[in-house]
Design a protein around this nucleic acid. Structure first.
Lengths: 125, 125
DNA sequence: CTGCATCCCACATGATACTG
DNA sequence: CAGTATCATGTGGGATGCAG
């Protein structure tokens, strides 16, 4: 795939699935939250208010499977604790993801505005 | 939301929907393809092989609604032509998106490997 | 050529309840 | 605390056919 002057090594068919994973509803959020440092399961749940227990578990597993996060069980503790943290690979995702986040926060107003404007035009027609 | 030393203006509740939009299955691909320049509907269809007509239209409409792309109809032409291009707002997305793409292409092998390794460990247990 | 409408199914996600 | 299991559901997305 090429992008203007830039070119992406590898075909776009191979990056699309990756994009799908990190772009899914929760992965990005989880990675960003974990970028602050290791967190326990319950902490993640609290910080990502809207996520359901189920999806938190599923997403964490998927990210672990891909080697983006590390899951550490402290079985000796009572109550039991499980800590999640980014792997080195996972950490390399912080920067690009943060850039995207920044873009989103900077432009969400503009998008919102465009949406309203568009609705208004629709009403005319 | 905070990310290590960095902090994101606005709460994460507001950026999540944005991330969801640009992170959906097709938006990223379409934006990247359009970053090469304006394209006609049929051209987009050809370049993004796996997309269905329906999803192409739907995604284009959504992106247009958000002011990321511009839709221009050349009604005078025969056969009719419709051209899509990135708006200025849309163009600001290229860089962060490209960064992500680059990451994906650079690390998809590592991820693939991790996945296999993980499966092997599962088999042991 | 462009693209809308309809049908339809699979899957992703949510809610709730239960377990070690 | 950290999950798992089950059920219910909404939506994404493909196929097809029609229209301007």
């Amino acid at each position: 795939m090429k992008l203007g002057n830039m070119s992406v090594p590898g075909d776009c068919g191979s990056i699309s699935p990756i994009l799908a994973r990190i772009g899914d509803k929760w992965s990005t959020l989880i990675i960003l939250v974990l970028s602050e440092g290791p967190k326990r399961y319950s902490v993640l749940r609290r910080e990502i208010e809207s996520i359901s227990q189920r999806m938190l578990t599923l997403t964490l597993r998927a990210l672990e499977r891909d080697g983006l996060i590390l899951r550490t069980v402290h079985a000796d503790k009572n109550p039991p604790q499980v800590e999640y943290e980014l792997t080195d690979l996972g950490k390399t995702l912080i920067d690009p993801l943060y850039a995207l986040c920044l873009w989103a926060s900077q432009n969400c107003d503009a998008i919102e505005e465009n949406r309203k404007k568009h609705e208004a035009e629709q009403a005319d027609a």
